[in-house]
C-alpha cells in the first residue's frame, strides 16, 4: 500500500499558541465574569477546527466580543503585555455587518495565526471584534505604542490584507488614551 507522506500526518505548528475568548454582556455580572476562555490552539488544523465550530461575529448578539490573544496575554488593558500598548481600530457601519464583518474578522485571524507581519508580528498581542448596535469594531492590539516602525508595518499590512481603499485612513490609539478619554474621541497616534 502507498503510505501518505509524513506531512499528511503532522499538524502544522503555529509560531504561537493562541487563546480565543468570548465576552457576553450580562449586566448582572462583572466585566471579568462575562469574559470566558473558549479554547486554545497551536496548530493550523486546530485553529480551523475551532473556527469552523463557532458562530460568525455577525450572528452574535449586541454587546458580545471575540478576542484572540497570544497564550498568556489576557484581553484587557491591564495585562502587563498590553498596558503600554494600543490598537489599530477599524469601525464598521451597520451595513458592513452583513457585507464585511465576518470576512474582515477571518482575515484578521489569518494575519495573526499566520504571522503575516514578519518580525513586526512579535508586537501583536491579539485582536478583538466588538458587535455593537451603533456599529461593529475590529482591532489589532500591539504591545508598545512607542514602537512606531512595527506599528506602522502592521497597520499598512493589515489594510492591504483587507483590501481597504487608501481613504479613509485607519488609526492607532494607545490604550492609555482610550481608557482616560473624557469625550467620545480618542487621540490618534498613527494613521495609515
Amino acid at each position: 500500500p502507498v503510505l501518505p507522506s509524513s506531512d499528511e500526518y503532522i499538524k502544522h505548528p503555529l509560531q504561537n499558541k493562541w487563546a480565543l475568548w468570548y465576552f457576553k454582556n450580562d449586566k448582572s455580572k462583572s466585566w471579568t465574569e462575562n469574559l470566558r476562555l473558549i479554547s486554545k490552539f497551536d496548530t493550523v488544523e486546530d485553529f480551523w477546527a475551532l473556527y469552523n465550530h463557532i458562530q460568525q461575529p455577525s450572528k452574535l448578539g449586541f454587546g458580545c466580543d471575540y478576542c484572540l490573544f497570544k497564550d498568556g496575554i489576557k484581553p484587557m488593558w491591564e495585562d502587563d503585555r498590553n498596558k503600554l500598548g494600543g490598537r489599530w481600530l477599524m469601525t464598521l457601519n451597520k451595513q458592513q455587518r452583513h457585507n464585511d464583518l465576518d470576512r474582515y474578522w477571518m482575515e484578521t485571524l489569518l494575519c495573526l495565526v499566520g504571522e503575516s507581519f514578519d518580525e513586526s508580528s512579535e508586537d501583536v498581542c491579539g485582536a478583538v471584534v466588538n458587535v455593537r448596535p451603533k456599529g461593529d469594531k475590529i482591532a489589532i492590539w500591539t504591545s508598545n505604542c512607542q514602537n512606531r516602525d512595527a506599528i506602522v508595518t502592521i497597520g499598512a499590512g493589515y489594510k492591504e490584507r483587507l483590501c481597504l481603499p487608501s481613504k479613509p485612513l485607519i488609526s492607532y490609539q494607545s490604550h492609555d488614551d482610550t481608557s482616560s478619554k473624557s469625550g467620545s474621541t480618542t487621540k490618534n497616534m498613527y494613521s495609515v
Binding site: 509560531q15 488544523e45 480551523w48
Partner: peptide, 20 residues
C-alpha cells in the same frame, strides 16, 4: 525558524481533517 503561513495555504487547510 519563524513559522509563517500565507493566506492561501491557511485557507487550503480549512476543510482538511488532520490525520492525527
Amino acid at each position: 525558524d519563524k513559522k509563517q503561513y500565507d493566506r492561501d495555504f491557511l485557507l487550503g487547510c480549512q476543510f482538511i481533517t488532520a490525520s492525527m
